[in-house]
Design a protein around this nucleic acid. Structure first.
Lengths: 371, 371
DNA sequence: CTGAAAGCGCTTACAG
DNA sequence: CTGAAAGCGCTTACAG
């Protein structure tokens, strides 16, 4: 357990320069190890008695050094406890080793599984995940430009369709790869991974039709959202294909919130001629609608059938358990990360299609029943 | 709109070396601007006709340069579109400009508001937020060591009490600041920000007692969790203080999941002598318990009163709306980030107390009623 | 297969 | 108040 520490004059001088840092190099004779808080590639080279170039090569291109050298270097790395300094590597390689995810609202649990999928894929590929909430005032163009230009990110995943990187000033050719996930923006043709929103909405309508419902309403999402438009369009076209009426007073305004669902319930209650079934543009509004009816003494599915959209965690345990359209949230995160990483590594767009659509699935539970 | 581009031989040579990069410098005569994809501090210095040191100072210590110089430099920065390269700055300053948040399960929506609070505070302070899911196999000690040693992070927020940085090999004195958030680990005394778990649990019990309940049960969280222990202890001591019995068959095992709540409901149903009220260690289990009873044809609060813990989003819209203990999730995230940043900047621990406890609040809704 | 050397873009004592 | 120069830790053509 005894150890003798040698500090050379040169080392000492360095240490004093870096004031405030406990900087020293020790040589533990018994274990034969160099013990240093943050050994550098220089330390490894010294211990291995090779050049730093060789250590670097052994690390990045093991096949380019001899077997023997590789062994010696690996040994030295272990003895010193060396870890590559990513900042230095990144500066040299002009990369950042990170991708950034721009989320419209980090507080919204809908994004947690997507983030989880992104993170799992990125971390498997050795990339870090930076997150930023686009609602933060300082994010708007400042941070995005920062990320894009300040070598902060090798790529960008946008969960917010309202963000338009094509409008950011600066050379678009030098811009790192960008992939939209879930949402997208119709004003540009950046690659995107999305759910089949209109197909999912059609699934909901056909399910209700199959149960005998002929009067079907819809609660819309926020007006400025692509998902809102796609889901509404899916409902309308399915209705049309089935020869059913799309009555405008059966299309309730909403904004994806629980409260909007409750408001829709109030409107539904006020109707003369009520739809017998509702396809909501998301689960929160479906739950809000059900709660609203419950407070008014009515019950789902006895008085009206309700289908949600998203299959959020609570859908299954809600009372009644919610029939809904499941979207593979973790998978879309993985898929977006994979597409982005392909572009970062491959450079071209040939690694994956420009738009990838993930299928949605109907989950039948207890909030729908025969008319 | 016309622009003439000069490319010097030296520039050209550089460009060819950096193959694959569209590297050139142009001088737009009309606007009098240097247009370059990523202008460096050198370009700014050239345009401003000062040294790079002066540009750097004007940026980091504006008070150390003359007013006139400052003006010239700012002007040059604007004309070139310069943005600091964080990677280079970080290498030089031996910092990373980022904090990392280690989350036990990114897919769990409980963490989204906390993350949101952390991100808001960090981004206000100009720090990036890196996230990693500790369930990822490659995270365990590898990535943590990476973050700590590879200059990846200036500080660490641990949302997972199972992570024990004190066990990571390497010099603890060179370790960047670490703050636990929500959870903590009793085997070390790292600073932490936490909710008043036992106080919150006691609040729930006293509320039930106030409604006349004398037979009160508890659904526990997972066995190896500090929060589980704290909340159970809060229930037990409140029960004791009120002179009520803590019957072991009224303490149901759980794991914070909806399914565990449903299982507790089955156990409750099988009981000879049933508690008339249940304090669950979290909202998911409370909801699962209510669902379980609902399926068995019983109803809350008619047959049993239930209090949750956490006040997750759905609590308010659940049927019945859940009485619960609210914890300021966004606030705890802000608080943890503030504590961490204080330590990063201040160096010492004097910036904030070692343990900060945030009060919990009782939210009375419809899942509890008089016995 | 290996090493010497230049350089990524910035910051910061040091000297004036 | 300002500039010349060293250096953060790494990588990579280049030459051997």
């Amino acid at each position: 357990m005894q150890s003798i520490t040698f500090i050379s004059v040169a080392e000492k001088k360095k240490c004093q320069a870096n004031s405030g840092e406990s900087c020293f190099e020790g040589f533990d004779e018994q274990a034969g190890q160099v013990t240093k808080a943050f050994p550098t590639i220089q330390d490894v080279a010294r211990v291995a008695k090779v050049s730093t170039a060789t250590v670097s090569r052994a690390l990045s291109y093991p096949e380019r050094v001899s077997k023997e050298t590789r062994r010696v270097v690996i040994d030295a790395i272990e003895r010193t406890g060396y870890r590559v300094n990513q900042t230095a590597r990144n500066l040299r390689r002009k990369q950042s080793g990170a991708i950034v995810v721009l989320v419209p609202n980090l507080g919204n649990p809908f994004f947690s599984k997507i983030l989880s999928g992104i993170e799992a894929t990125a971390s498997r590929e050795g990339l870090n995940v930076l997150i930023a909430d686009t609602r933060q005032p300082q994010v708007s163009p400042r941070l995005i430009g920062e990320y894009l230009h300040a070598n902060r990110a090798d790529g960008l995943i946008l969960l917010d369709g309202a963000i338009r990187p094509d409008l950011i000033p600066g050379a678009p050719d030098r811009r790192p790869p960008i992939v939209y996930c879930c949402e997208w923006n119709e004003d540009n043709d950046l690659p995107s991974v999305r759910f089949d929103n209109s197909g999912g909405a059609a699934l909901a309508v056909r399910h209700l039709h199959g149960l005998g419902h002929r009067k079907i309403g819809h609660i819309l999402g926020p007006g400025d959202n692509v998902l809102t438009r796609e889901r509404e369009q899916g409902v309308r076209s399915a209705l049309g294909a089935l020869g059913l009426e799309a009555r405008s007073d059966w299309f309730f305004d909403g904004d994806f919130s629980l409260a909007a669902g409750a408001r829709a319930a109030a409107h539904w209650l006020a109707l003369e001629d009520r739809p017998t079934a509702i396809a909501a543009a998301n689960d929160e509004m479906a739950c809000g609608f059900i709660s609203g009816l419950h407070r008014a003494g009515l019950s789902v599915p006895d008085d009206v059938s309700v289908v949600g959209f998203d299959d959020i965690d609570i859908a299954e345990q809600f009372i009644p358990a919610l029939t809904t359209i499941r979207q593979p949230r973790s998978e879309i995160g993985e898929s977006a990360a994979t597409a982005l990483i392909g572009r970062i590594r491959g450079g071209g767009s040939e690694t994956s299609p420009e738009v990838k659509v993930l299928g949605a699935e109907l989950i039948v539970r207890s909030s729908t029943r025969a008319a």
